Computed example of a mutant assay.
Amino acid sequence: MTESIRVSNAKGLYLEGIRDGKMAEALEKYTGDRYTQRSTGVRDGKEGFIEFFTPFLERNPVRDIQVVRTIEDGRFVFCHVYQSLNNGEAQWVTGDIFDTDDEGRIVEHWDVIAEYKWPTVSGRTMVDGPTGIEDLDQTKANKALVQDFAEKVLIDGRTDLAPNYISAGQYDQHNPETGDGLEGLAKHLKEVMRSGQAAQYVKIHRLLGEGNFVVIYSHVKQGGDDWAFFDLFRLKGGKIVEHWDIQEKIGPKETWRNSGKF
């Protein structure tokens, strides 16, 4: 499958600009007439990107960055990314959404970054599993199913309805603390309820889908704090069969370098 200009630009900014350290060249090639930044530690614009990543590149001379999955939905691109810095000294999983202009050049960016954790309860990593886009004719139906799941189960808390959306035969889990299947999900939910750390979804800010993959970007309350979550779902036969997520606690507003995470 030939890569679109939007996907190519999103990956180019990541791989050439950050992995290869060619920031100015990548920004010139892949961004448009503005670059609005939602990563709270980075100022808006190309200057903010260079200001943030110059010391990052100096601290991390060895950078293994892999764009594992992409979703393209209209003018938006989602990237699911693994990063290993300085030969594994630090490992991260990142989810990014890029908005693009009419020419496919990047004009806005949102992200969530979390520490890569291993081992996991399921034995699956936070990024492994299928990557290929299939069932393009099911994009609309899959997006509608995840939208309904998000509203009724995640926001309204109707966990009893989860089997209406999640396959009873297969639910491969990549959240580090959760086992496979509906049973693994139920056990995890009981544990977090007891601990007082249950995630309360406040608002779904973005929902993007392409074929068998759908991702949601959400504001979540957890343990009294504000968090940003990406939940990535793979669907098959009208049910959710796989789940990855990335969770990041949002820092105090006085630490933001731009207008905020959402």
Rank of each mutant, 00 (worst) to 15 (best):
G104M: 09
P176A: 15
V121D: 01
G238D: 15
T120Y: 00
V62K: 05
R34H: 05
I65M: 15
K236F: 05
L208N: 03
A198E: 08
S4H: 13
K221F: 03
V146Y: 10
Y165E: 06
M1I: 02
Y35A: 08
G260E: 07
R19N: 05
G17H: 06
K261S: 05
L145I: 03
D245R: 14
L208V: 05
H109L: 06
G157C: 06
E16W: 02
A10T: 09
V146G: 10
N142G: 07
G179C: 13
W244N: 07
R34V: 11
V215L: 12
L154Y: 00
A90N: 13
K249I: 02
H174V: 08
D226P: 03
G196L: 12
R38A: 05
F53L: 08
E115Q: 14
G169W: 02
Q170L: 03
H219L: 12
E248W: 00
F230V: 11
V153P: 11
K187C: 05
D99L: 14
E108S: 13
S122E: 10
A90M: 12
D225Q: 15
F229V: 04
Q222E: 02
K203H: 15
R69V: 07
K140F: 03
I106H: 04
A26V: 01
A144Q: 11
H109W: 08
V68Q: 02
Y116C: 01
I133M: 07
R59V: 01
E210S: 11
N9Q: 05
T94F: 10
Y217I: 14
G157Y: 06
Q147H: 08
I5M: 14
G169E: 06
V93E: 07
A141R: 09
G260V: 09
Q222M: 15
